[in-house]
Design a protein around this nucleic acid. Structure first.
Lengths: 134, 134
DNA sequence: AGTTGACCTGGAGTGCACTCCAGGGTGAAT
DNA sequence: ATTCACCCTGGAGTGCACTCCAGGTCAACT
């Protein structure tokens, strides 16, 4: 998998190819196209003169945010709603509200996983004791 | 949804009905039956004289463990493997190994979510600043 | 001129974890 | 005797998030 820089003469067609963007974001090319289809891009990436996607730095940064939101369990549907707000002037406080709600979910999630982790620890201790006096 | 105690005369048919077990575990009756079908029970719950499931205290305790494993992201397939080991004499160290591997996954997950949470905090700060000087 | 490799599209397929449904049984209450 | 709430089974259906595929374009290399 060779990731060579795009060096077409076309001016506005700079940026990473889809496969390079995939490597940069930790997603697959299929997922990248899927997210775009689903409207999760702030704006679709530019295209080279031959119609290939070219990801600008800002696109890649947004992909990072996307990955972060997904990994913390935000459904695609909700991300789309968030993205849609970007197209609305003065929607900052709405976006803020979505983020704050999500933050609460993540915090709750964190607390729960911490509790579960302790339960796992206890179970492991139990097995350690059991295995030891064999 | 009335949850009345079972008072059939049959001796070994004590325990919670499936709906009571659902309430106790936080799962649905469908999920309870599904888990049983999938072989996630240490042993299937007893049955009343008319063939209805009766969950003993130990069954309900195991359901708690099941919920904990699922909520920390252990796939059903892996839980089944773990449960299968319960039927094998002297498999304690194998079960221990599975739990320790899972614990590492959960810890990793926790670290990642903590990192993401900080990213969310930063984004929120950014919006707060933006919304404030409007 | 032909081959190669990366890219394109629309749409079908997959895996997972449930969730729902039809058709039927049982025991208590009216 | 019928109504009701709850239970049963096997199997179909759902929602989500990808993932894969066929058939095609394009630019670069041999």
């Amino acid at each position: 998998m060779t990731v060579t820089a795009n060096q077409l003469p076309s001016g506005p067609a700079e940026g990473l190819t889809i496969s390079a963007a995939a490597v940069a974001s930790g997603l697959t090319v299929d997922t990248l196209r899927y997210y775009e289809k689903e409207g999760l891009t702030l704006q679709p990436p530019g295209r080279s003169s031959s119609g290939q996607r070219r990801y600008a730095e800002s696109d890649v940064r947004w992909l990072g945010t996307l990955v972060m939101l997904r990994k913390t369990g935000m459904p695609i549907r909700d991300i789309r709603r968030f993205v849609d707000l970007y197209r609305i002037e003065g929607s900052e406080s709405d976006r803020l509200a979505i983020l704050e709600t999500h933050r609460e979910h993540v915090r709750e999630q964190l607390r729960e996983v911490q509790t579960h982790l302790e339960a796992i620890d206890r179970k492991i201790d139990f097995y350690n004791a059991k295995v030891m006096n064999k």
